[in-house]
């Protein structure tokens, strides 16, 4: 069976800076894969390339056997490949419930559905997912009033509301206190096991990524340095060098 997401020899340069060079990776359906790498190693650029935020220079990106590299962000999102942002992004002036409601899937949108009201099922699902991330009590609060950690949880719940096939998470635990991290991890695993959402996670917190991911890719200087099981990657001398500045 072909992998769910297939990135082949992708390169991307910004002027003279080679952000991604010849990167290939595969993520199988139902898997949790991780991407690690020092700051500036090109992880977020790779995410942006996959979700269509900018065109790639070379290579191909396939999702469910469909070429993505020519599609734009909303088109890719509607195919079930969704990303969250490193700098958490939510709709600040809207309430949590409204944030959830508008995150319903937007495939097959017609003029009729654009002008339609939300139904009982929409409200129920929004409520359930807010309950899952522990924000139900704050559902009628403007999202901008939430703490940073709560905004991250809300963004995650919004992503689940969109019913994606695969989720790209850009540093889901950055800026969250350690107690909350464990809760978030449980919910990520829940989304993967119970909702069948494939995850590709960028993470700096080694404890988190080692326990979460089944396979890890390590980037450094825009190139793929190592890949494999968490143990293998952690003990790879090149990875240790890259992190500790051995190069």
């Amino acid at each position: 069976m072909s992998p769910l997401l297939e990135v082949n020899n992708v390169s991307k340069a910004f002027g003279g800076v080679q952000a991604n060079h010849d990167i290939s990776l595969q993520v199988a359906d139902g898997e949790i894969a991780g991407i690690i790498g020092p700051n500036g190693s090109g992880k977020t650029t790779l995410f942006n390339s996959i979700v269509g935020a900018h065109p790639i220079d070379r290579g191909s990106i396939k999702f469910r056997d469909e070429e993505l590299s020519r599609l734009r962000v909303p088109h890719i999102a509607r195919r079930g490949l969704l990303r969250t942002f490193q700098q958490t992004r939510i709709y600040k002036q809207m309430t949590c419930v409204e944030n959830m409601l508008i995150s319903r899937p937007h495939a097959n949108e017609t003029l009729g559905s654009m002008l339609a009201d939300f139904d009982e099922a929409d409200y129920r699902e929004a409520g359930e997912l807010l309950e899952l991330v522990g924000l139900y009590a704050k559902r009628n609060l403007q999202a901008g009033e939430l703490s940073f950690g709560q905004q991250k949880l809300l963004e995650f719940a919004m992503a689940l509301m969109n019913n994606p096939k695969m989720l790209l998470l850009d540093e889901p635990t950055a800026g969250i206190n350690p107690t909350l991290i464990n809760g978030l991890l449980e919910r990520l695993v829940y989304a993967n096991r119970e909702l069948g959402i494939t995850l590709l996670v960028i993470e700096h917190n080694m404890r988190v990524i080692m326990s979460l991911a089944q396979r890890i890719y390590c980037l450094a200087h825009g190139q793929l340095l190592a890949e494999g099981a968490p143990e293998t990657v952690r003990n790879d001398p090149r990875v240790i060098d890259a992190y500790l500045g051995g190069q």
């Binding site: 979700v51 734009r72 962000v73 909303p74 999102a77 509607r78 969704l82 990303r83 942002f85 992004r89 939510i90 709709y91 600040k92 002036q93 809207m94 409204e98 508008i102 995150s103 899937p105 937007h106 495939a107 919004m158 992503a159 969109n162």
Partner: peptide, 15 residues
């Protein structure tokens, strides 16, 4: 409203 608050996010969510 979502477009007003963050149009890039709205696009990323498939709107």
């Amino acid at each position: 409203n979502a477009i007003r608050d963050d149009e890039d996010k709205a696009e990323a969510m498939g709107l």
